[in-house]
Amino acid sequence: MAGEVVAGADALVVDEKDHVATALKDIQAGDTIHYRSKDQLVTVVALDPIPFGHKVALVDMEEGTHVMKYGEVIGRATVKIERGRHVHVHNVEGIRGRGDQSQGA
């Protein structure tokens, strides 16, 4: 488990392979988000409101990208996602537990 929080950070990146950061406060569209990645202080401008605990994209992702958090795959992008966008159920789907896509369905 990586990623202890630095005081003053707006978002947490758990693993350096991650495509997303998790908001540590409610963020408005247009706000500059400060986070730490690979020991560097980095910023990204929010393109959407990002509620506390929700994710913001740190990189541009094509549709179909396997989205990474905790250094692991958490799902698949269902549309193109730009850096700064809110990443959630409207643009990411689960790959596992998809009974709706099973042959028996």
């Binding site: 958490i74 959630h88 159920v89 990411v92 689960g94």
Partner: peptide, 15 residues
């Protein structure tokens, strides 16, 4: 869970 920011079962499990 979804309102709290968790998007998929994979994300929840890894946490």
């Amino acid at each position: 869970n979804i309102a709290g920011g968790l998007s998929t079962i994979e994300e929840k499990s890894l946490g």
